[in-house]
Simulated scan of single mutants.
Amino acid sequence: MKSLSNAELKAELNKILTYGNNDITIDSESIEILSNNKDLIVMSTAECSGCDSACEVIKLAIEDLELEKLYINNADSVLLYFKINPNFNLKKLLDAIDIVHSLVSEETDVIFGTSCDENSSEDYVKVTVFLSYLQKLELAAANNYIEKLGF
């Protein structure tokens, strides 16, 4: 889990976003939804292979954030970026996205994209999860996190 400034968010996205023929791209408007006027932006990654790898990576990334008491149900925006094989079963990817939808409010913006890697196995998934929070972030959780950073 990593806390990001807007500049760091854009740098991280520049590292992972691709624009290949099989990719589901994320536009600049979606990135603005994630980053504009937010008090906190955090990032977590997870990777997994296997039958339920898409759902498993979502669960792992969310658990990583929850260790820092940053809960997805408090997020104002969620961006999910998956690295998958072009032959990955998209139904399984949508099942993973449904997990996120079930954990957030109807007002939460959930954005997703994919990057295809022909060199990965067909059941491999890596997800990068970005959460952004407005002032409604629980004050205690924010204070705990700030204390961990040494401020």
Score class of each variant (00 low, 15 high):
2 K>N: 14
4 L>R: 05
5 S>V: 10
6 N>F: 08
6 N>S: 12
6 N>M: 10
7 A>P: 07
9 L>T: 10
10 K>D: 14
18 T>G: 05
21 N>Q: 12
21 N>K: 14
22 N>F: 11
31 I>R: 04
35 S>R: 04
35 S>Y: 05
36 N>P: 06
38 K>S: 05
40 L>C: 06
41 I>D: 02
41 I>A: 00
42 V>Y: 00
43 M>I: 00
44 S>I: 01
45 T>L: 03
45 T>N: 04
47 E>S: 08
48 C>N: 11
52 D>W: 07
52 D>H: 10
53 S>L: 03
56 E>H: 06
57 V>S: 00
59 K>M: 06
61 A>P: 01
61 A>I: 00
65 L>V: 02
68 E>V: 05
71 Y>M: 07
75 A>M: 11
78 V>C: 09
79 L>T: 04
82 F>A: 08
84 I>F: 06
85 N>T: 02
86 P>Y: 05
92 K>T: 08
100 V>K: 00
100 V>W: 01
108 T>Y: 08
108 T>M: 07
110 V>A: 02
110 V>D: 02
114 T>K: 02
116 C>F: 02
120 S>M: 11
124 Y>I: 02
126 K>L: 03
126 K>R: 10
129 V>Q: 02
129 V>S: 06
133 Y>S: 03
134 L>K: 15
139 L>D: 15
141 A>R: 09
142 A>G: 11
143 N>L: 13
146 I>E: 14
148 K>S: 12
150 G>K: 13
